[in-house]
Amino acid sequence: MEIPKTMPYTKGTQIEVAKLEDDSIIAWLPAVVAKTIWKNNLLVEYTVSNRDGIALSEEIVNAKHVRPCPPHASTISFHITDEVEAFQGDGWWLGVITEVHPELRYTFKSAHSGEEVQLDQKLLRLQYDWVDGQWKQASQNVSKVKFTRGVKVEVSSDDEGFRGAWFEGTIIKSVDGKFVVEYATLKDEDEISPLTEPVEARHIRPSPPHIPVMNGFKLLDEVDAFCNDGWWVGVISKVISNQRYTVYFRPWKEEMEFEHEQLRLHCDWMGGRWMRASPK
């Protein structure tokens, strides 16, 4: 990596420092720049956990072994063979997903030690490379979803009154570049049979993963609320109890009350991944 003439990292900048073994990166350690030093060196501070609690550790590192902190967006769906980083101890260790478990848990195999451990989704992130001032996702981590017969999906619409909602359905078949979907809640003209219609791929996404909400939703949580046969995005504006909430819908500037089971945490389908903004 070529070092720019102007040091890009100033005092107080949050960064990550490469942990090397035999000139190969095995982990990334969160740190803060304490001071810039001549010849592209940095004095950095790590937050280290020990028996006495939390302490600071300092080290001089070369700027070529430093990168900015990755974006805060959090991937919430991983697949087997995904190259990921797992937070263990005081750093992010490189490895791969070898098994997918219920409740957003995964088996992580360390690239350094070869050991496997089952981890929660919150402790994992996809591997990205910092190249020419941009974050680039490894090509093997780009997920390609196939919408085949029987796959559960959600469908959006550009029709007036339906924009912003997602409706559950199942792929029946593909015809002329479109997918025929049978809806779970929308009915045909007879108001009995499930509505079936051809849909363009741009209006289809996989069914979101189930994200457990153990201690109730919190104020300002972004959620999807189930009403009028679909899921509509809103924000928790009032916690009435741990089972009932008021949700504010920005497009209409209206509020409605919902039970816990009528809500789910909102996430977005981006780049073949389910993503959720970090609480930060």
Rank of each mutant, 00 (worst) to 15 (best):
V61F: 12
P194T: 07
H101M: 06
E2R: 07
W28Q: 03
G89R: 09
I97P: 02
H65A: 08
D221S: 05
V66C: 04
V17E: 02
M275H: 04
W274V: 03
K109W: 05
D23Q: 14
K218D: 10
P71F: 08
G95A: 08
V96D: 09
G177T: 07
M256H: 14
S207N: 09
R51A: 11
T81Y: 14
W231L: 03
W232Y: 10
A201G: 06
A138L: 15
Q137L: 15
S241A: 04
I236Y: 06
M270K: 15
F249C: 07
K19D: 10
E168A: 14
W92D: 00
W135P: 02
E115L: 10
K5Y: 07
C227G: 00
D221K: 05
I240P: 06
E189R: 11
N41C: 06
P198V: 05
P68R: 07
P206Q: 01
V181W: 12
S157R: 02
E99N: 09
K218E: 14
Q140L: 11
D190S: 08
V131G: 00
N215K: 10
N215Y: 12
S110R: 11
V247C: 06
W93T: 08
A184C: 10
V61Q: 08
W38E: 15
Q118Y: 00
D23P: 04
T148Q: 12
D221N: 09
L219A: 02
H203V: 02
G95L: 02
N215P: 01
I26D: 06
D190G: 08
G95Q: 03
G169W: 13
D159I: 00
V32M: 13
T98L: 04
K109P: 01
I60S: 07
D132R: 08
D176S: 12
F162L: 15
A63M: 14
Q243M: 13
S207K: 11
L94P: 01
T107W: 04
E189T: 09
M270H: 13
I15A: 04
I26Q: 03
E83R: 14
E191K: 13
S74W: 12
K39R: 15
P206E: 02
A201S: 10
F167E: 05
A225F: 08
M275C: 05
N62I: 03
E58R: 14
N242D: 14
S237M: 07
F217K: 02
E259A: 11
V33W: 00
H79P: 00
H266R: 14
K178F: 01
M256S: 14
S241F: 09
E83L: 12
L29Q: 15
V145A: 02
G91A: 15
P71W: 01
I211F: 06
E160H: 06
I76A: 03
W274R: 03
K253S: 13
E154F: 01
R105E: 15
L186G: 06
G216A: 06
E2W: 08
T13V: 08
C69L: 08
R244I: 02
E191P: 00
L43G: 05
T81K: 10
D22M: 12
N41M: 11
W38G: 03
Q88S: 12
D132C: 00
I25P: 04
N41Y: 10
M214H: 14
